[in-house]
Design a protein around this nucleic acid. Structure first.
Lengths: 140, 140
DNA sequence: CGGCATCCACACAGATACTG
DNA sequence: CAGTATCTGTGTGGATGCCG
């Protein structure tokens, strides 16, 4: 039967088990979730179709499984960040885009991503220093 | 014997298995990781001691296990975002604070968190609309 | 093509015990 | 107090196969 009482999407990251937790924490988890981040950033450029989005994300790094992309999009749609436009044609065509709300979130996320790229060098150096210090300490 | 060739911390989130992945993606994952986000935000206020930080995070939501906090802090330290100041006293005292680099990241993250809080209402409404639509569609 | 259902592996995350 | 080490359960996330 599948459907049962299970409403909402499986939730991208973390358990939405209705715990004693401030609700905005959950939204934050959705937005900062592994694929949520990337989806928002990609959609900031322009609307994407499902597979197109999948490929676009795959391009950046390792790639997202179709299941995870579906989950992520559903969660973001439910939170009102992503708009889903399903056209009843054959073959099916579904376009995803940011809502105004989603655009706000995505811009924040993009800021973070851009910072990461800008400062990557500094992070690399810090890592090397850390590793060297660790190695030395292991000897000492 | 434990140490072996495994250098660096276990990595907060995602597998740092040395895949074919842009390095900045990893940093982004660290920063946006479940506890990384919260740690950075808390440390933006002031330095914290280990347990103090643990309690501070527990206050906001469900709470972080000591193990996860350790892991998160180590990862962020390695990336050069967090400074660890261990004093050789008894009882031990370790203070964690943001580096300049970390402060930049934390401010980005805080921006995101603040946005989430501001827009929580809109998200809630969107969710209700979504759920209603879904319920209606299920009836068909 | 877009999405859902099922199965499964593995890493994340918790509990516990121990060290400095 | 601030970790480390180990053992274990659970859930995330991936692969596959089937529907609209």
């Amino acid at each position: 039967m599948a459907v049962s009482t299970s409403t909402s999407p499986p939730a991208v990251s973390g358990n939405d088990t209705g715990e004693t937790m401030c609700p905005h924490r959950l939204v934050l988890e959705h937005v900062t979730s592994r694929w949520g981040v990337l989806v928002l950033i990609e959609l900031l450029d322009r609307p994407y179709r499902f597979s197109e989005l999948r490929r676009a994300i795959g391009r950046v790094g390792k790639g997202v499984s179709e299941k995870m992309l579906t989950q992520t999009l559903q969660t973001l749609e439910r939170d009102g960040l992503v708009h889903r436009d399903a056209r009843p044609v054959i073959p099916p065509r579904v376009d995803y885009s940011l809502t105004d709300l989603g655009r706000e979130a995505a811009e924040q996320v993009r800021g973070l991503a851009e910072w990461t790229q800008r400062r990557m060098g500094a992070v690399q150096e810090a890592r090397e220093r850390y590793d060297v210090r660790k190695a030395a300490a292991a000897q000492g």
